[in-house]
C-alpha cells in the first residue's frame, strides 16, 4: 500500500472538513474582527442533532437508504445550528460591538462552556456512536484505499465550497457581505443593512459548521460533547494559516493543515529517527503555523484588509 498517497487522501478528507469550519471563523472575523470561539460548539451541535435525528428515524422504522437518511437528518440539523448561530450573535456579540475588544471574546468563551455543558446534559458525557447507515465499501486507487464515505466527503466539500464562492462573488448578498467586511460604515452608507448581513454571516457559517460536524462524526464514527474544542481549534489555526478574513485562505489553510497533519503523523517518526512519534502530530500542525506566521505575518493569503483592528 502506498503510504504517501494514503496520507494525502486522509489529509484531503480532514482538510476539507477543516476548511468548511475555517470558513465559519474567517467570515465572522472578516466582518467583526472577532474570534467566534463558540463556532466549534456549533459544529458539535450539528453533529449531535444529526445523529439524534438519524436514530429517531431509524427507531421509528422509517425506511430510507443510508445517504437519504443522512441528508434528511442534516437538513434538520442545519436550521438548528443556524438559529443557534443567529442567537449567539444577537445575545453575546451584538450588545458588545462598541465594547473593548476582549469583552466579546470572553462572552464567546462563556458561550462555549454553556453549549458544551448543555450538550452534556442532552447527549451525555460519553462518546455517541455514529449510526452505521452508510455503505462501507473501500476503493483502491494506486495502492491507497479510500472509503466511499471519504470520496463523498471530498466531493461534498468541493461542491459546498464552490457554492459558497458563487454566493459571495455573484449574488447581491455576497456583494453586501464583502462590502461590510471592507468597511461596515461605508456599507451602511451604501444602503446595506449591516446587522442583517452580520446575522446572515453567522447563519451561513453555522450551516457550514453543521455539515462539517456531521462529516467529522461520520469520518471518525463518533461524536462527543467536547469534540468542538479541538476541531474548532484546528480549524481556526487553518484560518490563520491561510490568512484570517480571507475565504480562499481558509480553504487553502484547511486543506494544507489536514495534509500536513496527516503526513506529519505518518512520517514524523522516520523524520526524527524515532524520537518523535505520531502522538506529536498536533505539534507538527502548530509548528508549521508558527513558522508560516514568522515568515508571512499575515498568513499565506492574508492581505492588509485582513485586519483593521
Amino acid at each position: 500500500m502506498d503510504i504517501f498517497l494514503q496520507q494525502i487522501i486522509n489529509g484531503l478528507v480532514v482538510g476539507g472538513i477543516y476548511a468548511l469550519i475555517a470558513l465559519g471563523y474567517t467570515m465572522v472575523y472578516g466582518i467583526l474582527q472577532l474570534i467566534n470561539f463558540a463556532h466549534g460548539e456549533i459544529v458539535m451541535i450539528g453533529a449531535m442533532v444529526t445523529i439524534s435525528c438519524i436514530n429517531f428515524l431509524v427507531g421509528h422504522n422509517v425506511n430510507l437508504s443510508g445517504p437519504v437518511l443522512l441528508t434528511v437528518s442534516i437538513a434538520m440539523a442545519i436550521p438548528v445550528t443556524m438559529l443557534l448561530g443567529y442567537l449567539i450573535e444577537r445575545v453575546a456579540y451584538r450588545p458588545l460591538r462598541k465594547a473593548p475588544r476582549m469583552a466579546p471574546l470572553i462572552t464567546a468563551i462563556g458561550l462555549s462552556i454553556v453549549l458544551q455543558q448543555a450538550a452534556t446534559m442532552i447527549w451525555g458525557k460519553n462518546y455517541v456512536p455514529f449510526p452505521a447507515i452508510l455503505p462501507t465499501d473501500v476503493l483502491e486507487i494506486g495502492g491507497a484505499s479510500i472509503t466511499t464515505l471519504q470520496v463523498a466527503i471530498i466531493i461534498l466539500t468541493a461542491v459546498i465550497l464552490t457554492g459558497l464562492f458563487l454566493l459571495i462573488e455573484r449574488t447581491k448578498l455576497g456583494r453586501a457581505m464583502r462590502a461590510t467586511a471592507q468597511s461596515p460604515d461605508v456599507a451602511r452608507l451604501m444602503g446595506v443593512n449591516v446587522n442583517t448581513i452580520i446575522s446572515m454571516t453567522f447563519m451561513i457559517g453555522s450551516a457550514l459548521g453543521a455539515i462539517a460536524g456531521v462529516l467529522v462524526a461520520a469520518n471518525y464514527d463518533q461524536a462527543h460533547a467536547y469534540m468542538g474544542f479541538m476541531v474548532g481549534l484546528k480549524a481556526f489555526t487553518a484560518a490563520v494559516l491561510g490568512g484570517i478574513g480571507n475565504l480562499g485562505g481558509a480553504v487553502l489553510g484547511g486543506i494544507l493543515l489536514g495534509i500536513i497533519e496527516s503526513i506529519g503523523s505518518g512520517y514524523l517518526g522516520d523524520l526524527t529517527g524515532g524520537f518523535l512519534g505520531s502522538q506529536y502530530k498536533d505539534i507538527f500542525a502548530f509548528l508549521v503555523l508558527i513558522l508560516v506566521l514568522i515568515f508571512r505575518p499575515s498568513g499565506l493569503m492574508g492581505e492588509r484588509v485582513a485586519e483593521r483592528a
Binding site: 445575545v91 453575546a92 450588545p95 458588545l96 465594547a99 469583552a103 466579546p104 470572553i106 462572552t107 468563551i109 462563556g110 458561550l111 462555549s112 462552556i113 454553556v114 455543558q117
Partner: peptide
C-alpha cells in the same frame, strides 16, 4: 459559563 456571559454583557 452563564455568569461569565452576564458579567461581560
Amino acid at each position: 459559563g452563564l455568569v461569565m456571559i452576564v458579567i461581560m454583557l
